[in-house]
Design a protein around this nucleic acid. Structure first.
Length: 268
DNA sequence: CTCAGTGTTCAGTG
DNA sequence: TCACTGAACACTGA
């Protein structure tokens, strides 16, 4: 479930587990889809013997800072993840790369569906794909004036704009729906028709939702019961939110979208 | 067996 | 050229 909070949680977990340690061995699985623009053995060669200095993130992109460049970058797609463990027998199915650190910790990237990517970059924030991203709502949430100016130029449904990584990097399907639900804005509303008050609510809810999700380490059990998140999965017929109001499902911005008519007024 | 899916890209349209 | 839409991608699991 890799949207911004999940990627940030993975970043912190790996940082805590392996920061300051040397990569003594790298194992890889050949995969010409997941490794983009680089072969698996070239990644292994670049990482072997290096020391992990830290990890940075922008949107859903995560990269390791090493004592020598280039650095490895990870995007999780729909099903990618970084696993931390100590025993070789715990290596996950569908793994693509495993780093063995000098203190015995292992970090593996796994991706069953292979929509994720492993890349090598000399300057991750200065080169695509990261250089093409919009703001990261946790790292640098812009002020209200920026939101107003940007949304006034967009004719697409607000849901589609929130999913656009060149606008808000890291926002994915559930966060977009959650923000619109809490801001009481219908997902099909054209972005350029939102009022100043609606945009202010949108920005505030985006801030509060990603901040909270990151704070609790993306642990869904610690998401407030008032969040739509808990009730939206499975498109169950008769699904209702935390106050028993029916949930609608549809396709907006090319993605399954959940909203509550009683809360989010339809576009006129 | 069929289909949906927490993401991104690219071809096609207006 | 730009903004936007929808299909495609690859695979698992319901």
């Amino acid at each position: 479930m890799p949207e911004l909070p999940e990627v940030e949680t993975a970043r912190r977990d790996v940082e805590r587990a392996a920061c300051g340690h040397r990569i003594s061995r790298v194992s890889t699985v050949d995969d010409t889809i997941v490794y983009e623009g680089v072969r698996a053995d070239a990644v292994a060669a670049a990482l072997t013997g290096r020391t992990l200095v830290g990890l940075d993130r922008h949107g859903k992109h995560l990269w390791m800072k090493l004592d020598r460049r280039p650095w490895p970058m990870f995007h999780f797609g729909m099903t990618g993840w970084l696993h931390v463990y100590r025993e070789e027998k715990d290596r996950p199915r569908f793994w693509k790369i495993e780093l063995l650190f000098d203190h015995g910790v292992r970090v593996a990237y796994r991706d069953p569906r292979r929509l994720g990517r492993i890349r090598l970059r000399h300057d991750p924030p200065g080169e695509p794909p990261v250089s093409e991203l919009g703001f990261d709502p946790v790292l640098n949430l812009p002020g209200l004036a920026f939101f107003k100016a940007q949304l006034a130029r967009r004719k697409a449904p607000i849901k589609a704009v929130l999913l656009d990584q060149s606008f808000s990097a890291g926002v994915g399907n559930w966060i977009a729906d959650e923000v619109l639900y809490q801001a009481r804005i219908h997902p099909a509303r054209r972005a350029d028709t939102l009022s100043g008050a609606e945009i202010a609510r949108l920005r505030a809810k985006l801030d509060c939702i990603v901040t909270h999700a990151v704070k609790v380490g993306s642990d869904e059990a610690h998401f407030p019961r008032t969040w739509l998140f808990h009730y939206r999965w499975g498109k169950t017929k008769g699904a209702v939110d935390g106050r028993c109001r029916p949930i609608s499902f549809g396709q907006i911005g090319g993605r399954t979208t959940a909203w509550v008519e009683a809360v989010q007024a339809r576009p006129r």
